[in-house]
């Protein structure tokens, strides 16, 4: 016969295990960043890199480390974390394993915004234009969410419809563009961290930090909705419509603020939350921080491979995320026997 305190203890032990997983991911992330900074097409000895990090010399090597590698690594972590964070929340709030900012059309809208800027406005306008256009699907989906009787499925289908519309318009623009611009747009659509700079770190990090905290605050309510469903959630005191609008707005805004700097890096937002869910389960109070850190780790790893595998050629990171992430995800899905979603 189990006593009350035994059951509580068992649950607390289970929760502690999840905290340990999160700390492990954090540790791996720091380790990966420490290794990534020593790798690159311009070879700098391992210990030299760390002395540069401490001393800030104004040499060629110093500038490579400080103005190319470090901001790029930070950008990879921020972008991966932000996309995974937004992906985890949209999957939860729409109760659908495929619902991510990517499938909701936000990324492809940002792609169109970037293409318009590259072709007609000049490169200075890429980020504001991408951000402005990417807000269109955000508001369309929110408008649908406010409609009476709108289900999560309606929102996802509307998102996919917009994904096709924005991609089609972008393709049309590329069709009549000159080859140089096409290449630039293409890089943007695949997703690239090559333009990472210190200037981009601050606004993206601020967006990630604020949005993460706002979303984290709602994780308990998301749990209730996922476990109990909309109607029973209401009887438990949660307003599913209002929660859905809040979470959708914050995660969309977060995605838009990231992809306007990096282009549409796919897959991280879908894969990272799923892998974490397989490891620690669906409790969002643990899943959200785990997914966020894991997304950063995943994108950083992919980007480091993108920088080094064919050096001195640097591949767009999106190619690597799709090539590596796809098969890895498929393998995990097939290996996993029990239903986890």
């Amino acid at each position: 016969m189990l006593r009350v305190s035994d059951v509580v203890e068992e649950y607390e032990k289970y929760s502690l295990g999840k905290v340990l997983v999160i700390l492990t991911i954090l540790l791996l992330l720091i380790l990966a960043a420490g290794i990534a900074v020593t790798l690159g097409s311009y070879s700098i000895p391992f210990f030299k890199v760390y002395s540069i990090l401490i001393e800030h010399p104004n040499s060629v090597e110093g500038r490579i480390v400080w103005f190319l590698r470090v901001p790029r690594i930070l950008m990879a972590i921020i972008a991966g974390s932000a996309l995974a964070c937004a992906g985890a929340m949209t999957q939860g709030i729409l109760r659908n394993p495929l619902a991510t900012p990517y499938t909701l059309g936000i990324s492809s809208a940002a792609g169109l915004g970037a293409a318009i800027a590259i072709l007609y406005l000049g490169s200075y306008a890429v980020i504001p234009s991408a951000f402005a256009i990417s807000l269109i699907p955000v508001f369309v989906i929110l408008a649908i969410a406010k409609m009476r009787g709108a289900t999560p499925e309606t929102m996802i289908l509307a998102g996919i419809a917009m994904l096709y519309i924005f991609s089609a318009v972008t393709t049309l623009l590329m069709f009549f563009a000159n080859p140089e611009d096409v290449k630039e747009i293409y890089f943007w659509i695949v997703g690239d961290l090559g333009k990472a700079s210190w200037k981009a770190i601050l606004p993206t990090f601020a967006s990630l930090a604020v949005c993460f905290l706002l979303l984290f605050w709602k994780t308990w309510d998301v749990n209730v909705i996922m476990i109990a469903g909309d109607e029973t959630a209401k009887s438990l005191g949660v307003n599913p419509e209002r929660l859905r609008i809040f979470v959708m707005f914050i995660s969309s805004f977060l995605t838009a603020s990231i992809v306007s700097f990096t282009g549409t890096i796919g897959f991280v937002c879908l894969v990272a939350p799923h892998i974490c869910r397989m490891i620690i389960g669906g409790d969002y109070r643990y899943l959200l921080p785990a997914s966020t850190l894991f997304g950063g780790l995943l994108l950083l790893t992919c980007d480091t491979i993108a920088r080094t595998v064919m050096a001195p050629i640097v591949l767009p990171v999106g190619v690597i995320t799709n090539c590596l992430g796809g098969p890895m995800f498929l393998y995990l899905l097939l290996r996993r026997r029990r239903e986890y979603w």
Binding site: V7, Y11, Y14, R95, W217, T219, W220, D221, N223, V224, M226, I227, A228, G229, L236, G237, V238, G281, G282, D283, E339, Y340, W341
Partner: peptide, 21 residues
């Protein structure tokens, strides 16, 4: 076909009216 969760977690959602976070 509900979302998988531990029995403890399912019952814990009943505490929602009493706890913020």
């Amino acid at each position: 076909g509900t979302f998988p969760a531990k029995v403890f977690e399912v019952v814990l959602t009943g505490r929602r009216p009493y706890i913020g976070w």
